[in-house]
């Protein structure tokens, strides 16, 4: 035992190592990429099986459905399941960006663009289909992210008596987590809009309504002036 004890390096070298902080080793590999820079899944395409996700998500919905009082409550539960994922993904995805663009988004537009491109690409391998600002002058704090075919809803048919429900509330929770984590407190809800004339093409079309808190809009206006 005693023979395997490492020899203590002189104090001077210890100090210089601490200063540089990027000494190759487990924590700082020589190429500068840590374990956070790439997915744990090393397969070529870095994709997961959609079937296994569908079964898992189906169980999540069934789990959330137990002892709920109504559809609002069910959506809230799905939202809560997604929220911590959003908080963590914000940090992780920013960390994986090139150093130049690694800063936290400071404006609403920058944040929403981060969500619709980088977050969406990470989760669904494609950007969101549209990002719009509410055209109603009374609600300047509302933004809409559209997804023509949400991946989480691919195999889900909501029964008629629950037609208000959209299981993409889980994704809304992820988006809400990203907004909250970035310091833009918001309420995000998912709404099915695949009815009527558009329904023929995209029956599962979903709009994520991002409703920022009033102080966010106030701050944005203040930042815009200066």
């Amino acid at each position: 035992m005693a023979s395997s004890q490492p020899v203590k390096p002189p104090l001077a070298t210890q100090a210089s190592q601490a200063q540089r902080g990027s000494q190759p080793g487990l924590r700082y590999p020589s190429n500068g990429k840590t374990i956070y820079h790439r997915p744990l899944n090393r397969s070529r395409t870095q994709e997961l099986s959609q079937s296994s996700f569908a079964y898992l998500f189906g169980e999540m919905v069934s789990y959330a459905q137990k002892r709920v009082t109504g559809i609002q409550d069910l959506e809230k539960r799905l939202n809560v399941q997604g929220h911590p994922i959003g908080l963590k993904l914000l940090d992780l995805l920013l960390y994986r960006e090139p150093p130049r663009t690694q800063t936290r988004p400071l404006h609403i537009i920058a944040l929403l663009q981060f969500i619709t491109t980088i977050l969406w690409r990470h989760l669904f391998s494609r950007p969101a289909d549209a990002l719009e600002k509410s055209s109603n002058p009374d609600t300047p704090e509302e933004y809409m992210i559209s997804d023509n075919e949400p991946l989480v809803n691919q195999y889900i048919s909501v029964p008629k008596e629950m037609n208000q429900l959209n299981c993409a509330a889980f994704v809304a929770g992820i988006v809400e987590g990203v907004c909250d984590g970035a310091g833009f407190p918001a309420r995000v809800t998912a709404h099915s809009v695949g009815k009527g004339e558009e329904g023929e093409l995209w029956p599962g079309k979903t709009v994520f309504l991002v409703k920022f808190e009033p102080e966010v809009v106030e701050r944005e206006a203040y930042l815009g002036r200066s």
């Binding site: 079937s51 569908a54 079964y55 998500f57 189906g58 169980e59 919905v61 069934s62 459905q65 195999y155 889900i156 048919s157 909501v158 029964p159 629950m162 299981c167």
Partner: peptide
Amino acid sequence: SDYVMKNPFY
């Protein structure tokens, strides 16, 4: 098996 068995409401 896709659209019925993977549907949590079935």
